[in-house]
């Protein structure tokens, strides 16, 4: 069956997209989860819908306009939350809904039916284009480069920004750089799992990995592997029963989470029963 499936170009594309999504989300998701930026990331995700609407209206690739819109919103939130008296989560809430509003306005102003709109909301890995794949590949390479070159500094700043600042480290530069990478990762993965579900790829694999390891680097690596397993399982389910791939990928990931949690609970019980627990 596999060789037969691989003859279809769209299947090969979706597999490639799954691999690349796992790499980018595994890396950036670890940064998001450990810095407790999940809500901020949700805000950027939804704000980028504004970019998709603008893309539809002016007739260019919605991924490109969403990327620009997403990065600008991310930089905006970072700037506003540092410089003004507005609470960070309130600023996120405003941008979250404003982006969605802009998107809806432009989609409805666009004459005729908006094709593929559902695929942006719920994800459709089967419709990823060659351009999407190239962009995702470039992103994965960029993330691997940035995180291996600046690993120590990123960890240092993520752990204690204020202390890093007392060490003459340009903390705001790194904050702006990383928030832009978060936005790019979100937007380029929208095709795979959709706006509504993209946050899951950035949090579930990391939460599973965090059950087994408490080391930043290991969480990144394990997350990539878990995201890969989830993506393949999800694709298989999506193909078999014909449902959007985003939903089936997330369903698979949550199942893996429960199995992992169960595994750890059973392991603890066995340790307790075998008497090894008495040592403690």
């Amino acid at each position: 069956m596999i060789t037969e499936l691989l003859q279809y170009k769209f299947i090969v594309n979706s597999l490639l997209a799954g691999i690349l999504a796992s790499i980018s989300c595994g890396i950036i998701g670890t940064y998001i989860v450990t810095r407790r930026m999940v809500f901020l990331s949700g805000g950027i995700t939804h704000a980028s819908f504004g970019g998709i609407g603008i893309g539809y209206f002016f007739g260019f690739n919605p991924v490109i306009s969403a990327a620009i819109f997403g990065i600008l919103s991310a930089l905006g939130i970072e700037y506003v939350s540092k410089r003004s008296n507005i609470r960070e989560d309130s600023a996120i809430g405003i941008l979250w809904s404003f982006g969605m509003a802009i998107g809806i306005m432009f989609v409805f102003l666009t004459p005729g039916y908006a094709p593929n709109l559902m695929s942006y909301l719920f994800g459709s890995i089967l419709t990823v284009s060659a351009l999407d794949i190239w962009l995702m590949l470039a992103l994965s390479v960029l993330l691997i480069l940035v995180f291996s070159l600046f690993y120590r500094l990123i960890l240092f700043i993520a752990y204690d920004q204020e202390f890093a600042r007392t060490h003459q480290i340009d903390v705001s530069f790194f904050n702006y750089l990383l928030i832009s990478l978060v936005a790019l990762t979100i937007v380029l993965n929208i095709k795979v799992v959709g706006i509504i579900l993209v946050i899951s790829l950035l949090t579930i694999p990391q939460s599973i990995a965090n059950l087994f390891t408490k080391n930043f680097k290991n969480i990144m690596l394990v997350s990539v592997v878990i995201a890969l397993i989830g993506a393949f399982l999800g694709l298989l389910i999506s193909y078999k029963i014909n449902i959007p791939s985003g939903a089936s990928i997330i369903f698979s990931l949550v199942m893996i989470f429960f199995i992992a949690k169960m595994f750890l609970l059973i392991k603890r019980e066995i340790v307790l029963k075998s008497g090894l627990g008495k040592k403690f």
């Binding site: 600046f150 202390f163 060490h167």
Partner: peptide, 10 residues
């Protein structure tokens, strides 16, 4: 990390 300063990158 207490030994890391702005100029020590890679």
């Amino acid at each position: 990390s207490g030994l890391l300063y702005g100029n020590a990158l890679f």
